[in-house]
Measured scan of single mutants.
Amino acid sequence: TNFTTRQLTELEKEFHFNKYLSRARRVEIAATLELNETQVKIWFQNRRMKQKK
């Protein structure tokens, strides 16, 4: 998935405060950013892996 700059900014901002999202928060973010819930979930999984390295 190619994310827009706005989407990436918002996802990174959320990640800064929360490494893990509740389902409710994931649904909320997905709706706000016009993404589906799975895209948000996978982005967070990938971002956590990236941070571990």
Rank of each mutant, 00 (worst) to 15 (best):
E12I: 01
Q39W: 03
E34Q: 10
T38Y: 11
R48K: 08
R6D: 13
R26W: 03
K50N: 15
L8K: 07
K19Q: 15
F15I: 00
S22A: 04
K50C: 09
Q51L: 09
K52E: 08
N2R: 09
E28D: 05
R48F: 08
N36M: 05
E14R: 03
V27E: 14
R26H: 00
Q45H: 12
M49F: 06
R25S: 04
T4H: 00
L21W: 08
N2F: 01
V40S: 06
Q7A: 06
R47F: 04
R26F: 07
A31P: 03
K41H: 13
Q7I: 06
L33S: 04
R48D: 09
F15R: 03
T32S: 13
N36A: 09
F44C: 04
R23A: 14
R6Q: 10
E12D: 04
A30W: 01
Q51V: 14
F3C: 04
N36Y: 05
K52S: 15
H16I: 04
W43D: 02
R26L: 15
K53M: 07
E34T: 05
L35M: 09
F44D: 03
R26M: 15
F3N: 05
K53Y: 09
K13Y: 04
A31Q: 14
I29A: 03
K53R: 05
T9R: 13
K19R: 11
T32E: 13
N2T: 13
V27Q: 14
Y20G: 07
R26E: 10
F17P: 00
K50F: 09
H16Q: 15
F17D: 11
K13R: 13
R23P: 14
L33G: 05
F3W: 05
I42L: 10
K52W: 05
Y20I: 08
R47N: 00
E34I: 01
Q39P: 05
Q7G: 01
A24Y: 06
F44W: 15
T9D: 12
S22E: 03
A31F: 01
H16G: 15
N2C: 09
Q7P: 01
E14K: 03
Q51N: 11
E37R: 03
W43I: 05
K13I: 00
W43N: 00
L11T: 01
R23N: 09
T32C: 10
F15H: 07
N46G: 08
Q39H: 07
K19F: 00
L8R: 05
R48P: 03
K19C: 13
K50V: 11
A24Q: 13
T5F: 06
Q7W: 00
N36V: 05
Q51H: 08
T1N: 15
E10V: 12
A31H: 09
N2D: 09
K41V: 13
K50D: 13
N46I: 04
L8I: 12
N2G: 11
F17R: 15
I42E: 15
I29W: 02
L21D: 10
N36H: 12
L33T: 06
T38C: 07
E28I: 04
T4D: 05
E10H: 11
Q45D: 10
F17A: 15
R26Y: 09
R23V: 11
Q39S: 09
Q45C: 02
V27I: 13
T5S: 12
E12F: 01
W43A: 02
N46L: 08
A30T: 01
Q51S: 13
T4I: 01
T32W: 09
T9A: 15
V40E: 02
I42F: 05
T9Y: 09
M49T: 12
F17I: 15
L8M: 13
H16Y: 06
N46F: 01
I42Q: 11
R23M: 09
E14Y: 12
T38W: 10
F3I: 08
R48H: 09
K53N: 11
I29G: 01
I29V: 10
N46V: 07
E14I: 06
K50W: 11
E28V: 07
T1R: 09
K50A: 13
T9C: 09
N46S: 10
L33I: 02
L21Y: 03
E34P: 00
E34V: 05
L8F: 03
T9W: 07
I29Q: 03
V40H: 03
R23L: 08
F44Y: 05
K52D: 09
N18S: 12
T1V: 06
T38V: 10
L11A: 01
Q45R: 08
K13V: 03
F44R: 00
N18P: 00
M49V: 08
M49L: 11
F3Y: 08
E28Q: 11
L21A: 14
R6I: 10
R47L: 01
E34H: 10
E37N: 03
K53T: 11
K50G: 12
E28A: 06
K53D: 15
K52L: 13
S22T: 15
V27N: 10
K50R: 12
I29H: 08
L11Y: 00
E28K: 09
V40Y: 01
E10A: 12
F15Y: 10
I29T: 04
N36C: 08
Q39F: 04
R23K: 13
T5Y: 08
L8N: 09
M49K: 08
A24M: 10
V40F: 06
N46D: 11
I42H: 12
K50M: 12
R26Q: 15
N46M: 10
E14G: 03
T5C: 09
K52P: 08
E12V: 03
V40I: 09
E14N: 06
V27T: 12
W43C: 06
Q7C: 00
T32Y: 10
L35R: 00
N36P: 14
L33R: 03
M49N: 08
N2V: 09
E10L: 12
T9V: 13
K19S: 14
I42R: 10
L21E: 07
K50E: 15
N18K: 13
R48Q: 10
A30M: 09
N18E: 06
E37K: 01
F17V: 14
E34W: 04
R48T: 11
E12N: 01
R48A: 14
K19T: 07
R23Y: 12
Q7T: 04
N36I: 03
A30D: 00
W43T: 01
R6W: 15
E37Y: 00
K53G: 08
T4M: 05
H16E: 14
A31T: 14
S22I: 02
F3D: 04
T32N: 14
E10T: 11
S22P: 06
T9L: 14
I29L: 12
T1F: 10
K53F: 08
F44H: 02
E37P: 08
A30Q: 02
F44A: 01
I42A: 10
E14W: 05
E14P: 01
L21T: 06
L11Q: 00
E37V: 06
T1A: 04
E37H: 05
E12Q: 01
K13F: 05
K41R: 11
E28T: 06
Q7F: 01
F3L: 13
N46A: 09
E14C: 06
V40D: 01
T1P: 07
E28W: 05
V40M: 01
K50Q: 15
N18G: 09
F15S: 03
L21H: 02
T4W: 02
L35I: 07
F17K: 15
F3T: 04
K19I: 02
K52I: 14
N46Q: 13
Q7R: 02
T32A: 13
T38S: 11
T1S: 07
S22K: 06
K13C: 02
E12A: 03
V40Q: 01
L33N: 03
R47V: 00
E28C: 05
L35T: 03
L11F: 03
T38D: 15
K41E: 15
